[in-house]
């Protein structure tokens, strides 16, 4: 059975390859360790976004299209479409602002903000690997997706854009252990922080000691922290032992598309001009002069 006692020349011949394998493994391990520093890890982001663009963004990429110049024309069309989309957003905003102005003039009352227009994209890649739970959508900066955009599907909140390419976006799902979403109960109004559990249900932390959720009530985003808009449906809350768990509504109605809306913009408060108070003249001041 055993194939021991090989010739010495064979093992000598193999040793450089073993050395090469060892060097490769050592280099990869060093690379992994080096990425514990966020600065070094962020150095690989351009590579990740470029590869993401290739996997998620280019749908009709073929050699024939490249040879005939069709690919270039299609790219130009996509750019123009993105520009039109961008301009149509401004148009919508202008119409909305005009309407608001009219309303102010008529009733002198404040109107609510119009809903932001989003970009709908197809989910082109997803993985259920052991690392961060992410999906790749085939729309990026060129289509008007913004960094930190909020992704939704028919069911509700899906996640947040963590990496933005030219034609693709990587979305960190709310089911991931490392995602944190400030939420509140629709009926109870109890606030908590939601994160992904290992069993497919969401877990809640930072709950108030006295108040409790109502069994089966809907969980919405609370907009605390400013990363998500208020009122997006996240799921339903359930009591599981002593803990409250959240059944994600996005998982129930996953049609393979996501809408990415711009993240809420928190306007920095304007600093008031501080009046400089001149110091009162001391009794000795005049004597010196």
């Amino acid at each position: 059975m055993a194939r021991l006692g090989r010739s010495a020349t064979k093992s000598q011949k193999r040793s450089p390859k073993r050395l090469i394998l060892g060097v490769f493994i050592f280099a990869a391990a060093a690379l992994v360790l080096a990425q514990s520093a966020p600065q070094i890890r962020s150095m690989f982001n351009p590579v990740r976004t470029t590869v993401g663009d290739q996997f998620g963004g280019n749908e009709g990429m073929n050699v024939w299209a490249w040879v005939t110049g069709q690919a270039k024309r299609e790219r130009r069309i996509k750019e123009l479409e993105a520009e039109v989309r961008n301009l149509s957003r401004y148009k919508a905003a202008a119409i909305s602002m005009a309407e608001r102005l009219e309303a102010y003039e008529e009733i002198l009352n404040l109107m609510g903000e119009p809903p932001a227009r989003g970009v709908t994209a197809r989910v082109t890649a997803e993985n259920d690997g052991p690392f961060a739970q992410t999906i790749l959508a085939n729309a990026g900066r060129a289509q008007g997706v913004e960094p930190g955009a909020v992704a939704l599907n028919e069911g509700g909140l899906v996640g947040r854009v963590i990496q933005l390419g030219e034609y693709s976006s990587r979305i960190l799902l709310i089911t991931d252990f490392n995602s944190r979403v400030p939420v509140m109960g629709e009926v109870s109004g109890v606030r908590a922080i939601l994160y992904g559990g290992r069993d497919g249900l969401g877990s809640l932390t930072d709950l108030p000691e006295r108040d409790a959720f109502v069994e089966g009530e809907r969980i919405l985003t609370s907009a605390e922290g400013g990363a998500f808009p208020r009122g997006l449906v996240v799921g339903e809350v359930r009591k599981s032992g002593d803990d409250w768990r959240v059944k994600f509504s996005m998982a129930e109605r996953d049609g393979g598309y996501v809408q990415m809306i711009p993240p809420p913009e928190i306007v920095k408060p304007m600093a008031l001009p501080v009046e400089e108070v001149e110091p009162a003249a001391s009794p000795t001041q005049g004597a010196r002069q």
Partner: peptide, 12 residues
């Protein structure tokens, strides 16, 4: 890249 893992994990 596809699994969003630190570069080098799957190489090892």
């Amino acid at each position: 890249v596809t699994f969003h893992a630190p570069i080098g994990c799957f190489v090892i």
